[in-house]
């Protein structure tokens, strides 16, 4: 059951960074292959609008 972990231990790391951009920069500083996902919180919907949407959907 630990094959996938042992495979990771033997592989070159290829990292998806989601969130704090500076962790991505840290990976780049270490010459690690990485991509960065720019994450934004979902837009805030006012509660009354949410209630209306809840009724419609």
């Amino acid at each position: 059951m630990v094959e996938k972990i042992l495979k990771l231990f033997k592989s070159e790391l290829k990292v998806v960074n989601i969130g704090l951009e500076f962790f991505y920069k840290s990976l780049k500083d270490q010459n690690v292959k990485a991509v960065h996902v720019v994450w934004q919180p979902p837009p805030k919907i006012e509660k009354d609008l949410q209630d209306i949407l809840g009724k419609i959907l």
Binding site: K7, L13, K14, V15, V16, Y24, V35
Partner: peptide
């Protein structure tokens, strides 16, 4: 190397093995 969705990032780095 910047993506606005997880899907497109994974598409670009197909053999990604770890995520932060």
């Amino acid at each position: 190397t910047y993506y606005y969705s997880l899907e497109s990032a994974l598409e670009a780095l197909k053999d990604a093995n770890i995520a932060v």
